[in-house]
Write a protein that binds this DNA or RNA. Structure first.
Lengths: 130, 130
DNA sequence: TACATTACTTACATTTTTTATAGTACCATA
DNA sequence: TATGGTACTATAAAAAATGTAAGTAATGTA
């Protein structure tokens, strides 16, 4: 875990922006390197820590933990611990977390579109440069 | 301007994720500290560098430049320089940039909703703790 | 008793992002 | 000749985010 410095300009700026702009507030919540992918997977149903890890082969356990904790703090995911050995912990989206579905879908289709545009312009450039 | 290190694990992870998940690809594009606010303002029409600066009182000129450059590279904004003295530079959304409008709106309303939930639960907590 | 399993934690290092501060070029006007 | 306005750069430093590597606890099974 790490602490952010509440006296920094960065912190002040983030707070101010988040207060004024709900878009930014929202973006801060879903904006870690892995947060969106985690949510995407969880949209399909609950998953255990280890299952998520397998689905995201390059994530480190530390990062997965951190992101899940942040999502939990922000009430995007719910964490359920079963008192077993070895431990079993399940993660699932909360109602408000599940409501990200529409946003994720839109981001997806916008992303696809942008990617297409981008590769189109790149191949045009290649042609031009020949 | 700053350079990212293309040999880092972080870079590799970002690339891989962006390839596989268009949501993440999209999130990377609109995901700088100030990118979304800038876009929100530009949705209402073109703005000059100095106007943007006034609208975002706490941004440094360097940050504004960096974010605009990134948005420009990603074809979200179009930059027009007028050959005058003192210089005049206008920024406006491209068509694909303008298509972020729907996403921003959704983020906004999700953000509002989340914020309401959050303050509700906090006041509940306060009551409980009394 | 030793080992495997699971979901972590901890200490530390590196990379990336953001901020701070002080310039620059250009020319019109005072 | 000095000043002012505009849109920037350059450089350094601070802060935040991510990654690396090595633990830990608990207990059922070999």
């Amino acid at each position: 875990m790490y602490k952010i410095k509440e006296t920094s300009t960065n912190y002040a700026n983030k707070q101010a922006l988040a207060e004024e702009c709900p878009e930014v507030y929202a973006a801060n919540i879903i904006g870690g390197q892995w947060a969106l992918v985690i949510c995407s997977w969880l949209i399909n149903g609950k998953l255990r820590f280890g299952e998520l890890k397998k689905l995201l082969p390059n994530i480190t356990e530390r990062m997965l933990t951190l992101q899940l904790r942040k999502l939990e703090e922000n009430k995007i995911v719910k964490r359920t611990v079963y008192a077993e050995v070895p431990p079993r912990v399940e993660y699932e989206l909360t109602p408000i977390g599940y409501e990200l579905k529409a946003i994720i879908k839109q981001l997806e289709s916008w992303g696809e579109k942008h990617k297409a545009l981008d590769s189109a312009s790149r191949s045009k450039m290649t042609k031009t440069l020949k």
